[in-house]
Design a protein around this nucleic acid. Structure first.
Length: 206
DNA sequence: CTGCTGATCTGCT
DNA sequence: GCAGATCAGCAGA
């Protein structure tokens, strides 16, 4: 059991924070039991000068957590149906977050199946941001939770470091604005990395 | 594996 | 009004 990640490791800039999050383990106490996921795909968003970021046009009740201190959950509702979860970064007052896009299950598969009975294969359980949020049971009421607090129902562990040679980057998924900014990061070869293509173009990336 | 469709929340125009 | 940091189910190749 590795120690919790410290908020200071996410405070400097969003890209460093995103890469640091790869390989970390997010564990959540759900009504069905504890579920844990090893992060293999993330995306960085910086509010101040990033048109793709929810924080770009200023603070609203929905994105307020992005403007707070690092290490807190930013959970939002999309497409009238799904939740997506981010971990806030940067110092208090500066908007930044890392979207959790994909992860590998590292806890009891039976508990995970209770949470996502429709998943066809185990690798699909947390493959994609809304799937991960559903698996971990993250909803609006988890918005703002401190994942660096050992007493929190959702915690972020440092995990085993990812070999830097296996980290890949590319354009963010589904983002129209600033699609040339390669702020999606993933661990090469992991099956739980989502297969979606970037907005407005076709073809695979490497 | 690719491409389409429906679900109907949130903040901006 | 409308586009969006989406997914599941189904059809067709």
């Amino acid at each position: 059991m590795t120690p919790l990640l410290g908020a200071g490791e996410l405070a400097d800039d969003v890209v460093t924070a995103a890469v640091r999050l790869l390989g970390c383990t997010l564990e959540s106490d759900t009504p069905d039991g504890t579920v844990a996921v090893r992060l293999v795909e993330v995306e960085a968003y910086r509010g101040a000068d990033d048109p793709a970021s929810h924080g770009f046009r200023g603070r609203t009740p929905r994105n307020a957590v992005m403007f707070g201190p690092a290490g807190h959950l930013y959970v939002y509702f999309v497409y009238g149906m799904h939740f997506c979860a981010n971990v806030s970064c940067l110092v208090d007052g500066e908007p930044g977050a890392v979207l959790l896009r994909g992860g590998e299950l590292v806890s009891d598969p039976g508990v995970a199946r209770l949470r996502r009975p429709t998943a066809r294969r185990d690798v699909d359980l947390a493959r994609g941001p809304a799937r991960m949020a559903a698996l971990l049971g993250l909803r609006r009421e988890h918005d703002g939770l401190d994942v660096t607090d050992p007493t929190s129902p959702v915690r972020l562990r440092a995990g085993s470091p990812v070999d830097p040679a296996r980290v890949r980057s590319g354009p963010r998924v589904g983002v129209v604005a600033a699609h040339d900014v390669p702020w999606r990061f993933w661990v090469d070869g992991e099956p739980a990395v989502s297969a979606y293509r970037r907005a407005g173009a076709s073809g695979r990336r490497k």
